[in-house]
Design a protein around this nucleic acid. Structure first.
Length: 262
DNA sequence: ATGGTGGACAATCCA
């Protein structure tokens, strides 16, 4: 039996996170490593650092904001970027779609949304809607498919440290829950929650602005790995690796890992 | 109710 190991990490600047990323890849050797918020133009992407570690890499980014990348041991097939619809900006720097080992993977950096009364929030909701249409148009829930990344939604009360206070935040509000549920209802299972039902205090993000947030457990679960039913059945485990948040020069996000038997 | 830190870039924008 082979194990297919995948991971997702909002790097918050890939060039400032290589001291975490490269050693983690050397140690864990995932088949696929999906990154968001690379914050780098394609011309300045640190390709050679990944090559030296034995990883191929595909990426799409811009100077200061957004940006997605995928590192993989095997060559990725059918790589494409963005939603490619007529409903809004291309957003090539928010979505990489590819195939590997017969599985379709979608690495996304969902718009954060800023505040509920801003155009950015309307755009976030629209983006979820467009993504659902994208799934319907190009894929089927019968196929092995994985959606992962920084999805900027904490789906349940147990996914944040203070649901009462945080209610209404752009990552924790009914409109976003509804958008997310609508996408899940297409046929996706939250793989982390499958293996940790009802488990509290499991977070993937700890705000830099909150003092001692890790020690005090003041986090959010906003990074996710979801899979269609046939793949969800094959998932062996899913866990949060806190190492990036505890590193010398820490990251605000952690690494989320899932393993599938193939 | 507000601000806190960190990243990019070079005065603010974003998270």
């Amino acid at each position: 039996m082979n194990t297919f190991r995948i991971a997702t990490y909002n790097v918050n600047s890939i060039r400032s996170r290589l001291h975490i990323i490269i050693p983690w890849l050397e140690e864990n050797r995932p088949d696929v490593f999906c990154m968001q918020e690379t914050k780098v133009s394609d011309a300045k992407f640190p390709v050679s650092e990944f090559t030296k570690a034995g990883y191929q890499v595909v990426f799409k980014g811009e100077k200061q904001y957004n940006g997605v990348a995928v590192a993989s041991l095997q060559k990725l097939e059918q790589v494409s970027f963005g939603l490619n619809d007529e409903e809004g900006p291309e957003d090539a720097d928010r979505l990489i779609k590819f195939r590997l080992s017969g599985i379709t993977l979608l690495n996304t950096y969902v718009p954060q949304g800023r505040d509920r009364d801003t155009p950015q929030f309307a755009y976030k909701l629209q983006w979820f809607k467009r993504f659902r249409a994208f799934l319907e148009k190009h894929s089927s829930p019968d196929m092995p498919l994985i959606w992962l990344g920084d999805l900027n939604v904490a789906p349940e009360n147990i996914d944040v440290h203070d649901p009462k206070r945080l209610l209404g935040h752009v990552c924790f509000t009914p409109e976003v829950w509804e958008s997310f549920a609508r996408i899940k209802s297409w046929g996706l299972t939250d793989i982390f929650r499958k293996h940790h039902p009802g488990e509290t205090k499991q977070y993937t993000f700890f705000d830099y602005r909150v003092p001692k947030s890790v020690e005090r457990g003041l986090g959010w679960r906003v990074d996710h790995i979801l899979a269609t039913a046939s793949l969800a059945e094959k998932s062996m485990n899913c866990y949060i690796d806190m190492q990036p948040r505890q590193a010398e020069k820490p990251s605000d996000h952690t690494i989320l890992v899932a393993e599938f038997k193939m």
